[in-house]
Write a protein that binds this DNA or RNA. Structure first.
Length: 409
RNA sequence: GGACAGGUGGCCGAGUGGUUAAAGGCAGCAGACUGUAAAUCUGCCCGCGCAAGCGUACGCUAGUUCGAAUCUAGCCCUGUCCA
């Protein structure tokens, strides 16, 4: 691990970012010689990236920290096709408009985590729709087609898994790897990009790009993948109260974002500190020494640091203050979700639904019946209970972790 | 175009005429224990209703039947093999 000569690979290795490298020695050498231009692509399948993508964004950040140049590629073109990697089913096709607005949402986080200034290592954002959408079918077949054999394409996991499980793989999706390969070559020619980063499920796509460019242009490219992030209990990372842990504020309030990190498994804390924060390693080592319930302190640091990077200093502080007030103080913090109530108060069931703690009246009732609904800390077991809010506001909780404020409008 | 297999609740997967809102598992939610951790144990887990009950639901449509997820016909979709 420490035999790398370049700052880049040493940094990435010690932080736990490296899963596989196509040519460790070659890349190490390249990184020693000068600025490496590297890219990672993001398809516009949702209005925001989520935690599962954060490792790769951090990777671009590290790259820049080590004195190299990151390219954030928006997959405006590839999204129209759909990457079958790691999926059992094809996604439904997105409209042009949806893709455009998704790109607008996704691109936000890069401006927080990367420096887009006009310097030799300034980050660049490009959209592959720029070159993919104008490709002519016959042209593409003739230029790229001869370099791919179907025999080989069938051996890549993205394809093989579908076939083995007898799940449909459409011809549309089958072409994805070709387009991604084409992207890498295009970026190499246009921007001098030499390295593609990606999640471990992108290995096949990356290798294809490297081979295509070598055959067509004789340029040597490199690939690096990050480990697939799973939590210590084996699940894919990134589920929270209401689904995915989104990076954008509009998709997930910062308080909930903070809480996700505050609640990670003990066994994940150190790994996540290395991957998702800029904390120096000796600081992390100090936190790693904590035992038992002291680990909670490390989780707070993790939550603060990640929230600061992704959501900003202010959001991180507000979330921490709120958490301290509601959990340690037993009161209520101002950053909790709030539901406004009329002057007559509100029934407990409607209050639970209003705060999003229950999706239906039935669910709210079950929560109450199970003893999970609390008003200012005391369990409410009567589903007809009416909350009057004499003091103007009250804390309503679902279980011990989900809290919200009811307030007279 | 032909033969065969299949399409069940968020997912996996039983069920082949009523006792089935549909076994079991996973995921999820809550309770106990804890450290806002893990593991474990317990309860809940389509909607509305205080309830009896009602409404929806087993690819789609039309039938048979007192009664269908279960039978029939047509259609749509998927896989395997064949042309």
């Amino acid at each position: 691990m420490s035999e790398y000569k370049s700052d880049l690979l040493r940094l990435l290795a010690e932080r736990g970012h490296i899963h596989q490298l196509t040519d460790a020695e070659g890349l190490d050498k390249l990184a020693c010689e000068g600025i490496v231009v590297a890219y990672n692509g993001y398809d516009a399948t949702a209005p925001s990236l989520h935690i599962g993508n954060l490792a790769s964004v951090m990777l671009l950040r590290r790259l820049q920290q080590a004195g190299h140049k990151p390219i954030a590629l928006m997959g405006g073109g590839t999204t129209k096709v759909g990457d079958p990697s790691g999926k059992d089913e094809s996604r439904k096709l997105l409209t042009q408009d949806a893709i455009a607005s998704n790109i607008a949402g996704i691109s936000q986080v890069f401006h927080r985590l990367l420096d887009f200034s006009d310097s030799p290592t300034g980050a660049v954002m490009v959209n592959n729709d720029e070159w993919l959408s104008t490709l002519g079918y016959i042209d593409l077949l003739r230029t790229v087609g001869p370099h791919f054999t179907v025999n080989r394409m069938l051996t890549f996991d993205s394809v093989k898994l579908r076939l083995e499980r007898e799940q449909p793989l459409t011809f549309l999706e089958f072409n994805y790897m070709i387009l991604q390969a084409y992207d890498f070559r295009e970026l190499a020619l246009r921007h001098g990009c030499r390295l593609q980063l990606g999640g471990s499920d992108q290995w096949g796509n990356i290798v294809n790009g490297i081979e295509l460019t070598r055959r067509m242009n004789g340029i040597e490219l490199f690939g690096l993948t990050t480990p697939l992030l799973t939590t210590a209990d084996g699940a894919k990372m990134g589920k929270s109260v209401n689904g995915a842990v989104w990076l954008n504020e509009e998709m997930l309030p910062s308080y909930d974002f903070w809480q996700y990190w505050r609640n990670v498994d003990d066994r994940d804390v150190v790994r996540f500190l290395k991957l998702f924060t800029d904390l120096p390693l000796d600081e992390i080592a100090r936190l790693e020494a904590l035992q038992g319930s002291e680990i909670n302190a490390a989780k707070v640091v993790l939550a603060n640091e990640v929230t600061r990077l992704v959501r900003g200093e202010e959001a991180a502080r507000a979330a921490e203050t709120t958490a301290a007030a509601t959990f340690a103080g037993g009161g209520l913090g101002q950053d909790l979700p709030t539901f406004e109530v009329g002057p007559d108060g509100i029934g407990i069931i409607d209050a639970l639904i209003g705060l999003g703690f229950a999706a239906s009246r039935g669910e709210a009732k079950r929560l109450i019946a199970g003893g999970g609904a609390r008003l200012d800390g005391t369990a409410i077991t009567d589903e007809a209970y009416h909350i009057t809010l004499a003091s103007g506001e009250a804390k309503l909780s679902s279980g011990k972790k989900k809290h919200g404020i009811l307030r007279i409008a």
